[in-house]
Nucleic acid binder design. Structure first.
Length: 258
DNA sequence: ATGTCGGATTTAATCCGA
């Protein structure tokens, strides 16, 4: 089985690239983030022509997640039990389904903005609630939780930790929230870099950051032990970040033994 | 690093979020 996760930064803007990438990469399951379309706006017909079922959870302008699968898509859940809201609004940040015997959850963790911003507290609450929601899933069977975590797990996961002093994505509470996810039995599946010495997954559009490889590893694949033990290969597809009209994130592609 | 995107509204420059 091959699965992937990709923050596409608008599925409408990225549709030609997404379709090309599905054709060449041929994943069985894809976790998408930042689709930026309401549920009925997702281009499910186009991906269906390539053999994929779609489950989408969107709210329009911001956020939005989806799952694509060509090996079954059952038990779909939008959001999760106990998921916090922001300002009384339920944001579209998690969607879950069973594909090929694994429960996949595509997550778009709140950005946090700055540590003194209410969005930062929301981010920590959201991660803590996600942890609680995953307990029954992990008891039930194999689990993958993949997506844009908006947290760099270690100092090596940003191009220059000195630049990030006092910034979100690298603070101890955010990293502790990921550690608590791992304590449940989830493994951070290491993905290799196709170029350079570190598997960054995100490069800001501005200031030639991609060209200079000033990136961040904030897209992660967390897997239960049975899934992690089946990993044959995992890579960051930085080629998908190249050229005209890319997302600012690269996909992670994981191959499992059948 | 603050150099660009994407989506929206105030339909054509500006705002917001990342």
């Amino acid at each position: 089985m091959r699965f992937a996760t990709w923050n596409v930064n608008s599925v409408k803007a990225r549709l030609p690239r997404l379709l090309d990438w599905l054709g060449t990469t041929a994943p069985d399951v894809v976790c998408l983030q930042e689709t930026k379309v309401a549920g009925d706006g997702f281009p499910a017909g186009e991906v269906a022509e390539l053999g994929y079922e779609t489950a989408a959870y969107g709210q329009g302008r911001w956020n939005g997640v989806a799952l694509l699968s060509r090996i079954g898509l059952d038990g779909v859940r939008r959001g999760f039990d106990g998921e916090p809201q922001f300002g009384g609004v339920a944001e579209a940040r998690a969607i879950s389904a069973v594909c090929g015997g694994i429960r996949f959850t595509s997550v778009y963790v709140p950005n946090g903005r700055t540590p003194d911003d209410p969005h930062y507290a929301y981010k920590l609450e959201w991660l803590a609630a996600l942890r609680q929601a995953l307990v029954p899933d992990l008891a039930a069977g194999p689990v993958v939780v993949a997506g844009d975590y908006n947290v760099a797990p270690t100092d090596a996961d940003v191009w220059d930790i000195g630049v990030f002093a006092g910034s979100t994505h690298v603070t101890a509470p955010e990293r502790a929230a990921l550690a608590r996810l791992r304590e449940l039995g989830l493994t951070d599946v290491p993905a290799r870099a196709l170029k350079g010495d570190h598997p960054f997954t995100y490069w800001d559009y501005r200031a030639g950051m991609f060209h200079q490889n000033k990136g961040m590893r904030i897209d992660l694949v967390y897997a239960s032990a049975d899934v992690a033990g089946r990993v044959e290969d995992a890579l960051v597809d930085r080629d998908a970040r190249k050229g005209k009209g890319p997302s600012d994130h690269a996909p992670i592609v994981v191959d499992l033994k059948d």
